[in-house]
Simulated assay, not measured.
Amino acid sequence: FPGSVPGLQGYKVFIAIAMIVGDGLYNFVKVLSLTTIGLSHQFRQKDVSSDLPTVGHSSDHVSSQVSYDDKRRTQLFLRDQIPAWFSTGGYVAFAAISTATLPHIFHQLKWYYILVMYIFAPILAFCNAYGNGLIDWSLVSMYGKLAIFIIGAWSGASHGGVLVGLAASGVMMNIVSTASDLMMDFKTGHLTLASPRSMFVSQLIGTTMGCIISHCVFWLFYKAFDDIGLPGSQYPAPNAVVYRNMASLGVEGISSLPRNCLLLCYVFFGAAILINFIRDLAGKKWRQFIPLPMAMAIPFYIGSYFAIDMCVGSLILFVWEKINKAKADAFGPAVASGLICGDGIWTLPASILALAGVKPPICMKFLSRGTNITVDNFLTPQG
């Protein structure tokens, strides 16, 4: 088969991509529709601005519906706003810096690609932030995939379109995700009586720290694990392969796909949309029994270990709910956060041990029956 992902690997990658894109596209349209409906509803209410409990202004109508605590939170939050000239000027300054510097890092990424992304990014960032506030679902990855296909195809294969698409995806995702995260921080500040300026400064400090810490973490992983990013390794980095092949598909077209792979992609793409549509139509009682396409697509590519972890966690939560549903609902997210945090933190000592050349005393592997028989025959002494 032609292309960089021949054979079974090509089917695994692109079928997973088709399900991810189908799921993301459905939810993108869904969130965009909810955003449009919400905005049009607000614009139709012409007197909504006069009912907002802003500083120095209140109304009897709002006083009868909004509690005193909420009124005080809103008054304190609006008292310390960020000037519009500062946010606009900051965005223009960062856009200018990115447009000037990124082409020197990625030579194939031309300055006008970055400028176009910064022109359209505020619209996408607003839609994502507003939609995330409505349904608590950020579609940052979908905007990144959109940038991969559009900018990568615009550049073309002869001008490094794959690298251009991946770099453009990173730029777009950082712009859109930062806006959404900042709005969530503002919501937290509103609930905790923190000023918008303090929340903005806190995220600015955190982003600056991330620019340094993320590079150190990447260097630590890169030096500690020689096989990082390879299929079947301890850290296979499946998203890297998925995004890289998305860029290849957008630049090279369907000629890089294995035989009949495009037909299967169409089928699974439509299945992902259909499953989401059925989930939305089904009631709350039956929705929990319908799987998420994204949850099926990720283990389909990276393997069973991810699905086993999720299955064990879901089983624990299911048994806990049967024993004491109130405590499970109250403490379930905290327990899940602890397990995720513990698993993530362990990578730091694991990296240090790997850099020191320490090998685990016991190695466990789960093999297929045929491979296991071959290994047993090899280990069994002959004669």
Results as ranks from 00 to 15, higher is better:
27 N>Y: 06
58 S>Y: 13
282 A>P: 02
381 P>H: 03
137 W>Y: 12
83 P>T: 05
329 D>V: 09
331 F>T: 05
303 G>R: 08
245 N>S: 03
347 T>S: 13
172 M>W: 03
15 I>C: 11
196 P>C: 00
186 F>Q: 05
265 C>T: 03
118 Y>D: 02
30 K>Q: 11
76 L>T: 01
18 A>F: 00
303 G>Q: 08
143 Y>H: 15
304 S>Y: 08
44 R>P: 04
382 Q>L: 13
264 L>D: 05
278 I>Y: 12
371 T>P: 07
2 P>L: 14
115 L>I: 10
86 F>V: 15
62 V>H: 07
239 N>Q: 13
185 D>M: 12
237 A>M: 15
340 I>M: 15
155 S>E: 15
125 A>D: 11
187 K>W: 09
193 L>N: 08
381 P>I: 00
113 Y>D: 08
50 S>C: 10
339 L>C: 14
228 I>K: 06
156 G>E: 08
76 L>C: 00
203 Q>R: 14
13 V>G: 09
282 A>F: 02
276 N>P: 08
246 M>K: 01
35 T>M: 11
373 I>E: 13
279 R>S: 05
262 L>T: 07
313 G>F: 00
346 W>R: 15
227 D>A: 13
251 V>H: 06
380 T>Q: 09
177 S>C: 13
256 S>H: 10
217 V>W: 00
275 I>R: 11
346 W>N: 14
66 V>W: 07
22 G>H: 05
364 M>D: 10
303 G>I: 03
51 D>M: 14
152 G>M: 05
47 D>R: 13
96 A>R: 07
16 A>I: 01
23 D>C: 05
133 G>N: 02
380 T>F: 11
82 I>L: 13
73 R>N: 05
4 S>N: 12
56 G>Y: 00
319 V>E: 07
190 H>T: 07
199 M>T: 07
273 I>R: 05
316 I>W: 02
11 Y>G: 04
267 V>E: 02
122 P>L: 01
42 Q>V: 10
193 L>P: 00
311 C>F: 13
351 S>C: 12
26 Y>A: 01
127 C>T: 11
355 L>P: 00
94 F>M: 15
165 G>F: 03
318 F>C: 13
49 S>Y: 06
240 A>I: 08
114 I>F: 09
98 S>G: 05
41 H>E: 12
339 L>R: 05
267 V>G: 02
290 I>C: 09
64 S>M: 14
282 A>L: 08
3 G>F: 03
172 M>Y: 01
366 F>N: 08
187 K>F: 09
21 V>F: 01
82 I>R: 07
89 G>K: 00
205 I>D: 02
353 L>R: 14
271 A>D: 04
323 I>Q: 08
27 N>P: 00
49 S>W: 06
116 V>H: 04
232 G>A: 12
